[in-house]
């Protein structure tokens, strides 16, 4: 537990010092949304809103998470290897990436609302699915970036490997967001879509905890 804490703190310190991820990705999100606004105009229908929002967030996630293992040099990896068990390394990375992703997601939601307006979402469904989706996407991408970092050209591989892994999550998220547009959403539907997302999150975390030690040792 202590190691996880320390590792997460270290990642945040690094982030605060460099401000590379947050600033770069925010700029990316803002400019993309601006381009969308230029192309489509301010008023777009809700389905387009949902699709654009998740696509932009997905690519932001790719940018933010892909560096999580790639930036660690071989020497530093050896250092971690001696300091902490593999499970706490992967959990700390996942926690850090989920937090980063949530911050990024909220900020881009804000920018989206400013530029494109906010459809009348049912917040009881949208917010939990948004949170779970951010956690799931960042968790899955963390694992993929760990896999990609062990191979030669990781930038291209990250996209190839990551895309199929996040598509189920993305589909569920888009479905949940569409569902939350309806004025009256039955409670069973809310429970169904949120539990689907939750299930995938749990599977991703469990698989990562089991499989990461095999990736970690040399």
């Amino acid at each position: 537990m202590k190691e996880i804490n320390e590792l997460v703190r270290k990642d945040f310190l690094l982030e605060l010092r460099q401000k590379y991820a947050i600033n770069g990705i925010l700029l990316y999100v803002v400019s993309t949304i601006f381009v969308v606004q230029l192309c489509l105009g301010r008023v777009i229908d809700e389905n387009t809103w949902i699709a654009l929002f998740w696509i932009i967030l997905l690519f932001a996630a790719f940018n933010a998470v892909s560096k999580s293992f790639v930036q660690e040099s071989a020497a530093r990896r050896l250092y971690y290897y001696m300091l902490a068990p593999a499970v706490s390394v992967v959990l700390s990375k996942m926690i850090y990436n989920s937090m980063l992703m949530l911050i990024l997601g909220l900020l881009s939601l804000l920018v989206f609302i400013v530029f494109m307006g906010f459809p009348e979402f049912n917040l009881a469904l949208f917010l939990p699915s948004f949170t779970l989706g951010c956690i799931g996407i960042s968790g899955a991408l963390t694992m993929v970036s760990a896999i990609a970092s062990r191979s030669g050209n990781n930038a291209a591989l990250m996209a190839i490997l990551g895309f199929p892994v996040v598509v189920p999550l993305l589909l569920l998220l888009v479905n949940a967001s569409r569902l939350s547009l309806k004025a009256m959403v039955p409670v069973t539907d809310i429970v169904k879509s949120i539990s689907g997302l939750f299930l995938i999150d749990v599977v991703v975390v469990v698989l990562a905890v089991i499989l990461f030690p095999y990736l970690w040792r040399d």
Binding site: M143, I147, R150, S151, L157, I160, L211, Y214, L215
Partner: peptide
């Protein structure tokens, strides 16, 4: 398949692709 062809070292290739296979 792409992942396999991008790692040269044999043991590492086998291990990493096994992990990805379980994910897939």
């Amino acid at each position: 398949a792409v992942l396999r062809s991008s790692i040269d070292e044999k043991a590492m290739r086998a291990r990493v692709s096994a992990v990805y296979n379980i994910f897939a």
